[in-house]
């Protein structure tokens, strides 16, 4: 088998290069002095300084972070409930429909989710007067709807690996069902909850299309600002922003990975 591995290794190297070269270039050119992003003219951090003075962008980032955190928290709750349902109740009426509703958001094109939720919010506003106007609440609801499906996938995987006899042992030793869940189940699936939370957070922070549909006039999220700037062409400020995001995510993933390893 050994001698046949080199074409495979070639593919692997090519694949990783394909995935990482654009990101690396993005980071390198964020330190470029020139306004022309692709012409190297010297090392500079001026774009970072300008970025920090861009009030519109900072406002949008703050809104996005608030939405992302609210979304992640609620999506973890709902996604965990859904995972409980799928793992703990192997048979219930409407399970097929439940599973369908939980898988569909994973692949459903963003434009469809965005459009349909906007039409729902408009109809609801007409019908029951809520939500009055669109913004933080509607974007958060929309994000929860698709990110809870991702959380459910992550938590479900962990939950179905969990040795049921641990919970039974706790119950046998006198813990009531809710106590068992709090003292045994939750601590044991905590790593999945953490990665589910991070996943939901980044999914929300990353979403342009759905947010564009369900946002109101006063609520511009970070991706919307990036998008309108990118449409004008490449901009060194966006490179700087991208670098910050990549570093932040890498840091979060490494921290999450380390904390998971320690728990084992």
């Amino acid at each position: 088998m050994k001698r046949r591995r080199w074409p495979l290794l070639g593919m692997l190297v090519f694949g990783y290069a394909f995935l990482y070269v654009p990101i690396v270039l993005l980071i390198v050119y964020s330190f470029n002095e020139s306004r022309l992003v692709t012409v190297w003219s010297g090392f500079s951090t001026r774009w970072y300084a300008e970025l920090l003075r861009n009030q519109q962008l900072l406002d949008a980032a703050w809104l996005s972070v608030r939405i992302a955190a609210t979304n992640a928290t609620l999506a973890v709750v709902l996604g965990t409930l859904a995972a409980n349902a799928l793992v703990r109740h192997p048979r219930f009426r409407g399970r097929a429909g439940f599973e369908l509703l939980l898988t569909a958001p994973l692949v459903m094109p963003d434009v469809i989710i965005g459009l349909s939720l906007l039409l729902l919010f408009v109809a609801m506003q007409q019908g029951i007067g809520w939500p009055a106007g669109r913004g933080f609440t509607t974007i958060t609801i929309a994000h929860i709807t698709f990110s809870m499906a991702y959380v459910a996938v992550v938590v479900r995987a962990r939950l179905s690996q969990l040795d049921r006899s641990l919970e039974e042992a706790a119950m046998d030793l006198g813990a009531r069902p809710l106590g068992v869940y709090r003292m045994i189940t939750l601590p044991l699936i905590a790593p999945a909850l953490l990665s589910g939370w991070l996943l939901a957070f980044t999914l929300s922070l990353d979403d342009l299309v759905i947010a564009s549909f369900v946002a109101g006039p006063g609520s511009t999220t970070l991706p919307m600002v990036i998008y309108s700037s990118v449409r004008m062409g490449v901009s060194p400020q966006i490179n700087a922003l991208a670098t910050l995001i990549v570093l932040l995510v890498a840091l979060a993933v490494i921290v999450a990975g380390l904390s998971m390893r320690q728990r084992r």
């Binding site: 040795d163 006899s165 641990l166 039974e168 046998d172 030793l173 728990r263």
Partner: peptide
């Protein structure tokens, strides 16, 4: 009544 489980079911945390 208490039970000793086949897998022992010791709480890993």
């Amino acid at each position: 009544v208490n039970m000793m489980f086949q897998s022992y079911a010791l709480f890993p945390h």
